[in-house]
Design a binder for these strands. Sequence first.
DNA 1: AAGAGGATGCCCT
DNA 2: GGGCATCCTCTTC
Length: 204
Amino acid sequence: MEKKFLLPLEFYLENDVVKVGKDLLGKVLFTEIVPGEITGGMIVETESYAGIHDRASHAFNGRRTKRVEPMYQKGGIAYVYLCYGFHHLLNVVTNREEIPHAVLIRAIEPLYGIDLMINRRGQKSLSPSLTAGPASLTKALHITLKENFASFLGKKIWIEDRGFSLKENEIIKSQRVGVHYAKEDAFLPYRFRMKDNPYTSPAN
DNA sequence: AAGAGGATGCCCT
DNA sequence: GGGCATCCTCTTC
């Protein structure tokens, strides 16, 4: 597939993970995990996880275990991990130095390969539940632990800028989902949603 | 070596 | 709106 809109590496070499969380809204996430099966959608919801000082981050307090290792790599790769035993969650690692920043992709609006995604999700027709929610979209896009460490400049998973930029007042900011254990950091407004988009995730 | 718990979704009321 | 499925990773004994 021709990729003239591919996001360059510089986009991911950014230490301001809150900025990246917002800038990823409107970008288009693609996968071709199975050769010939291209699926993709516009990112409409993200959450930023800010390095070692963010209690909600897997890398809080400098924790560097095997699972978290992708976060400590140079920006531009995927951090995929298993949640609740069966849900794969996709993060975009972003940093210039060795700072474990990551942005969780929480929802996309389906655009390409919609029938494939419907099949993978076992649904009958297109509805917001197809890709609204971090585990729903990974299933629709066929993302699993095999994509952990994968480069966003590679053939299996990549992000494009198709010109869907949005203004600051079109971004809804709120608390992150499911991080009650994070004490005061649970209240940080690091969840970003595209205003009036029906494909954002339902919780909260 | 074992146990707890988690950045969730689904199906049932 | 609540309970459960299900399993890997990390922490602690």
